[in-house]
């Protein structure tokens, strides 16, 4: 259950952003979660609702975007893979670049500013 560690890291980043923009609150937090990021979205959401209490994101909604694996291949192919097979589905090459789907990114924040 490392979702708690990751959520508390998320809240640190959000708090930092809120402070930088002198925000009084946060309405929405959008996180991109790769299918191979090791994060279970349900556990992540649960952990978020526990951990957000007492932070600037206390009333924030969490929006999770599931990101599939994206690769690019020397043959020119760009797109997904089949299952967990990390090779180019077009030419079979295994020396590919994984461009998305393995990480978790804080994409966007809706901040409330003072009147």
């Amino acid at each position: 259950m490392h979702e708690f560690s990751v959520v508390s890291a998320l809240l640190d980043l959000v708090t930092e952003d809120a402070r930088k923009h002198k925000a009084t609150g946060v309405t929405t937090i959008t996180v991109k979660v790769g299918v191979m990021s090791g994060i279970e979205p349900e556990l992540f959401e649960e952990a978020f609702h526990v951990c957000k209490r007492g932070t600037v994101a206390e009333t924030a909604a969490l929006e999770l975007i599931r990101q599939p694996i994206e690769i690019s291949c020397p043959c020119g192919y760009q797109g997904g893979i089949e299952g967990f097979s990390f090779r180019c589905p077009k030419c079979g090459e295994t020396t590919i670049r994984v461009s998305d789907g393995e990480d978790m990114i804080l994409q966007r924040l809706e901040l409330e500013l003072p009147d």
Partner: peptide, 15 residues
């Protein structure tokens, strides 16, 4: 007026 969208784009594991 009193809301603002911010793009962050950092990894949650940044720290």
């Amino acid at each position: 007026d009193n809301s603002k969208a911010v793009e962050d784009m950092r990894s949650l594991l940044h720290k």
